[in-house]
Design a protein around this nucleic acid. Structure first.
Lengths: 136, 136
DNA sequence: TTGACATGAAACCAAAAGGTTTCGTAATAT
DNA sequence: ATATTACGAAACCTTTTGGTTTCATGTCAA
C-alpha cells in the first residue's frame, strides 16, 4: 500500500493523446526509446519526457538492456480509473434505462437489468414554476 | 456519428481534480453556479471556467432558470473512457492475458477519434540472446 | 425605480506543459 | 583505440492552464 504521491497521477497521464498512443504501442511489447520515438512525429527527447510522465504515474516500467532502456506497459494503475468510472456508470445506465422505458412505452417500466441501486438524480424538473433556489 | 471535434475531450476534462470533484457534486443534483462554487476554495469565475471545460467535453449541461444557470451531470461521454479502458483490461486481469491475445491474434483493430492507434503486432520476439535491436 | 443578486466576458498573470536543440556519458561495434 | 549508438540532463522557448480582479448585463425584490 505504497502511497503513490508522485507528481503525476493516472488521470493526468492519460490526458495527452501522445501518451495514450504510447500506452497502446507498449501494450504490444516492450521497446527501447529510439524505436518508440520512431513512431511519433516529435523528437526522441520529447517522447522520453512523455515516457517519464507515464512512469511517474506507474503506467510503464523500464528495464536496462545493454545501452538501451526498454519500456513496457504496466496496466495496473488503470484500475483506479476504472473504479472512478464505476461510480458514474450507474448514472448513464439509469439514464439509458429511463430512455428505453420511454421509447418502448413499457407500462410497467421498472425493469432494471443491472441490479444497481438507482441514483437520486432528478430526471424531471421541480413543480414550482418559479423554481426559486434560496427564498429570502 | 457526430464528430465531437470540440476543443476539450473527455480525457483532458477529467484530468483536473477540481473538475472531477465537480462531476461528483453534480451527479447528485443540478445546481446553480454560485452554489457550486461555494464548495470550492477558489473564485466563482474559476469554477465557471471549469464548468465550461466540462461543458465542451459534453460532461455537463446547463439550463437557465430565472437569473441563475443550473448545471447537471451528463455522464454519457464517459463511455468513451470506458471503452478505452476495456482495451487494457485484458492486460491487468491476469498475466496470461497477453499470451492469450497473441494466440488469438486479433487481425484488425479500428482507430477512433481519441488518438488511439492499433498496436502493430509482432508475434515473434527477437531470438538473439544478446537482444540486439538494430543489427547494422 | 432602485438596489441587490447571478453570471459571463475581459484583461491580466504565474506556473506548468509540451516541445526544441545542445551536450555529456555509458555501452557497443570496428 | 576510436567512432557510433542510445539515452538522459539542461537550458531554453512558446502555448496552455488555472487562477485572479474588474466590469457589464440581465433578473429579481422592495
Amino acid at each position: 500500500m505504497a502511497a503513490p504521491l508522485s507528481k503525476h497521477d493516472v488521470f493526468q497521464a492519460i490526458a495527452d493523446p501522445t501518451r495514450r498512443e504510447l500506452l497502446h504501442l507498449l501494450s504490444d511489447r516492450e521497446m527501447p526509446v529510439t524505436v518508440i520515438s520512431s513512431h511519433f512525429p516529435m523528437s526522441r527527447t520529447a517522447v522520453s519526457k512523455h515516457l517519464r510522465v507515464l512512469s511517474e504515474a506507474g503506467l510503464v516500467k523500464e528495464r536496462k538492456v545493454g545501452r538501451e532502456v526498454r519500456f513496457r506497459l504496466e496496466p495496473e494503475p488503470l484500475q483506479e480509473l476504472k473504479s472512478w468510472l464505476t461510480y458514474f456508470e450507474r448514472y448513464w445506465e439509469n439514464k439509458l434505462a429511463a430512455l428505453k422505458r420511454i421509447v418502448e412505452a413499457d407500462p410497467e417500466g421498472s425493469s432494471d437489468a443491472s441490479g444497481i441501486a438507482p441514483p437520486r438524480q432528478r430526471l424531471v424538473a421541480a413543480a414550482d414554476p418559479a423554481e426559486r433556489t434560496e427564498p429570502r
